[in-house]
Amino acid sequence: MNKETLWKLCCAAVILVAILTFTPVITPVGRYKPQLMGMPYTLWMGILQAIVLVGITYLGTLVHPGRKND
C-alpha cells in the first residue's frame, strides 16, 4: 500500500472516530456503565478515543504527502 493510500486511510479513520463521539458508542445519554477502574463509561471511552486520535495523528505524520515535498 502506498503512502498516499495510507494517508487517506488516516483521514478516514479520524473522521470515523470523530463521528463516533456523537453516537451512543462514546456518549450514551444518561448511562455511565460499564465502568473501567471506577471510571464512568463516557470518560474511559473518551480517554481511549483521545489516545487513538493522537496515535492516528502520529501515523499520519509518517505518511503525509507533505513529508516528501518539504
Binding site: A18, Y32, G60, G66
Partner: peptide, 23 residues
C-alpha cells in the same frame, strides 16, 4: 465527565487538522 469530550476530544481531532490543513 462530558466536559472531557468537549475539550480533549475536540483538541485531539484538531491536532490532526494541524498536519493536514496546516501543511
Amino acid at each position: 465527565v462530558g466536559a472531557w469530550i468537549f475539550l480533549a476530544i475536540s483538541d485531539a481531532v484538531m491536532v490532526f487538522g494541524i498536519i493536514s490543513i496546516g501543511y
